[in-house]
Design a protein around this nucleic acid. Structure first.
Lengths: 213, 213
DNA sequence: CTGGATCCCTCACGATACTG
DNA sequence: CAGTATCGTGAGGGATCCAG
């Protein structure tokens, strides 16, 4: 394995040698949501060849961005998780995500939306300075994908799964509809139809204030 | 030109399709310092094949990250510059630069340091919250490379070239010595020798407060 | 079934030469 | 100076296979 370098003694070049290879930052994106097994990563990155996933994980492990951990009995399985150094990529990933979201066109016929990409989209659209005031919670149902969003004490918590008792449930037919809607705080999406709301409709305005590109 | 995609409808995936290709972010790094001609970019990215540079510029232009501009007569030459959208990558580039700098080892025998990479390193080490107080200015002479640093009104200005009247001139034999030294505010580097100072030595402490990883 | 390794093919990248 | 043309190599893509 001959390292592919840029021939520059430079922080950015170094960073790109670590996480600039194809698929690497998408792996980091999914691991930022939580530790995952090989197969979980494979499912979240549908089009990645397994040898590439395997190679990336080894490289990221070698660079101490990712740690391979064997779960204690009885699970005994293997999970990959970010090291502290790897976790410090969060800001970069969220900023890149927001930057790219702005020119995200229509989804291609084969484009998928995964749970982790939706969670990342919500996190990247978060504006802490608008998150003061009373706590609020949402449940987002986008096709098969269900996540919940809790804003409390100016902080954000987004994770997979339903949230019984959420202040507002926002539901779209497909994940692809939800994605641009997160970027506009669902304002346009609701006006344009195709979004169903259950709960306190006033919380939608609040969502738009807290989340937008 | 068949676009190489990730098959995901996701802001991060979109961003990586634009600036995730090899060399792309290094081109952006150099253009963040200022508009450049093809040959300037080629010199700053010594190891890039010209056809790859050519291809990247076309792709970045197509994605409206870079604009190709013909200078008015009599120059008549062509420069590449970032669009506003491209300029919004600054934070990402600086954060990645700082992230990578922390694990930047010894320079390889063929590794080079360019003016733009040094300017980027200084900018990425800047801590605005420590930049209050009276204005200060520095001249950094690292081998052949000479840049100047002006901190005024809490803002930073870094550019190529000397600065007559700079409060402190910091000089190292090679650019590679300067790079880690920027990350530690030159504190260790001066103690370890190999750094010459001309001017007010008290300004060195100030430098270390304002610039570090 | 998870967690990969192996194989083969293609195409992007890298090196170099060359042209308007 | 500002690229284009050509060509070899190796990384990525896709499918399959294998061990625990």
């Amino acid at each position: 394995m001959t390292r592919r370098t840029y021939g520059q003694h430079c922080g950015l070049a170094r960073a790109l040698e670590i996480v600039g290879e194809r698929w690497a930052l998408l792996i980091v994106r999914d691991l930022l949501v939580g530790p995952k097994r090989f197969t979980d990563l494979r499912n979240g990155l549908a089009r990645i060849p397994t040898n590439v996933l395997s190679a990336r994980l080894k490289e990221l492990e070698h660079a101490e961005v990712v740690r391979r951990r064997v779960l204690p009995r009885p699970a005994g399985s293997v999970v990959y998780e970010l090291t502290e150094y790897g976790g410090e990529l969060e800001e970069v990933v969220l900023r890149l995500s927001r930057w790219g979201s702005r020119t995200l066109g229509e989804p291609g016929p084969d484009d998928i939306v995964t749970v982790d990409s939706l969670i990342t989209a919500v996190r990247s659209a978060f504006h802490p300075e608008a998150a003061g005031g009373p706590d609020v919670s949402y449940e987002l149902r986008a096709g098969e994908i269900v996540i919940h969003v809790i804003v409390g004490g100016g902080r954000l918590d987004v994770a997979q799964g339903a949230l019984p008792g959420a202040g507002l449930v926002i539901e779209t037919d497909s994940p692809a509809q939800a994605l641009p809607a997160v970027g506009t705080g669902f304002a346009e999406a609701v006006a344009g139809g195709g979004v169903r709301l259950t709960g306190d409709p006033a919380l939608l305005r609040r969502f738009a204030e807290i989340f937008h590109h």
